[in-house]
């Protein structure tokens, strides 16, 4: 098992490097960082000076190799824009984004799993139809639009929650809801189909024949089986929350990694963008790994082959 985790960990790092390589070349193809740093009105001379100072006159492969060499020594370079080591910049803001991602996941679980379970236990009832309606509309609604509507509803019309900043827990309520809502449809549907399938399984009939009814039946026999696939999807969704933070943090003016990513992309701050992509890729792959490990821990058929 340990060997398996180690191998999967190595695989994760390999994936992260591949992603960073692709990102590096695409970024440099799309923008001219020297021009971006100098500003749009700068003279050609200034741009060239900057290009030489940051080493941007070197060929791309050499620059990637330099960046890679730095990363292997634990040095992600210095931000062109903030004039600070990128690692420091990311470390400062990571906490905010982790808080946002975890609270968003909490919102997803709180809405999706009970809704899915109710729908499954009463298939084709009105609860089921409402849940399906929620799922379809949540899937169709874009994140930024939901964010704006939330701001209008709970920030302007009924000013219950603050709509900008990250000072108190109250600041996280609306963004967590917006970010969490995007995962509700997938998780709810999976809970519903999983539980419907499990409730029709032979071992549930066995449990009934032993005298277990509704509540105990669900708690003791159905939920663990039904939630197995849900848990791995939740782990993957948590990885996606980091990527999703780009839009949500910008809307709610939260100083996290997502907003940092947006700003550094706009400013062609390549060292920062590179590190963020690297971190997001590692988080995503690590969450997939966590999903596999959780599944193995909960399902003896995987744990004990």
């Amino acid at each position: 098992m340990l060997k398996y985790i180690l191998l999967r960990g190595l695989l994760a790092i390999a994936v992260a490097f591949t992603v960073s390589l692709a990102a590096f070349f695409l970024l440099n193809a799309a923008t001219d960082p020297a021009q971006a740093i100098a500003g749009e009105d700068a003279t050609q001379e200034v741009v060239e000076t900057i290009r030489a100072r940051y080493g941007l006159d070197q060929p791309l492969p050499v620059r990637y190799a330099q960046w890679l060499g730095g990363v292997l020594r634990g040095d992600f370079g210095e931000s062109y824009y903030w004039h600070k080591p990128v690692a420091e910049l990311v470390a400062e803001r990571a906490g905010t984004t982790i808080t946002l991602a975890l609270s968003a996941l909490f919102v997803t679980i709180l809405i999706a799993i009970p809704l899915g379970a109710f729908a499954a236990l009463n298939p084709n009832s009105w609860i089921d139809r409402v849940a399906l309606g929620v799922a379809v509309s949540a899937q169709a609604v874009p994140n930024f639009w939901l964010g704006l509507i939330m701001i209008i509803l709970f920030g302007v019309m009924m000013p219950i929650f603050p709509v900008s900043g990250d000072d108190t827990w109250r600041h996280f309520v609306l963004p967590a809801f917006v970010l969490g809502a995007s995962s509700v449809p997938a998780v709810m549907r999976l809970t519903r189909t999983g539980l419907i399938e499990v409730m029709g399984a032979d071992y549930i009939r066995t449990a009934r024949s032993k005298g277990f009814r509704s509540g105990a039946l669900l708690r003791r026999h159905a939920l663990r089986n039904a939630l197995l696939p849900v848990i791995s999807v939740l782990a993957v969704q948590l990885g996606q929350k980091f990527g999703g933070s780009v839009i949500t943090e910008s809307i709610f003016a939260i100083n996290g990694l997502g907003r940092l990513a947006l700003e550094s992309i706009l400013g062609a701050d390549i060292p920062t963008v590179q590190m963020l992509i690297f971190v997001f890729a590692i988080v995503f792959v690590a969450m997939n790994l966590v999903a596999d490990i959780l599944n193995a821990a909960l399902d003896p058929r995987i744990r004990i082959g």
Binding site: A201, Y203, T206, R208, S209, K210, G211, R301
Partner: peptide, 20 residues
């Protein structure tokens, strides 16, 4: 009654026990 006085075994032993 269930279990105490009446009990049942089923056709599919492969799936009638909870796998987890």
């Amino acid at each position: 009654f269930l279990g105490h006085r009446i009990a049942m075994i089923f056709q599919e032993p492969m799936t009638s026990l909870n796998p987890v």
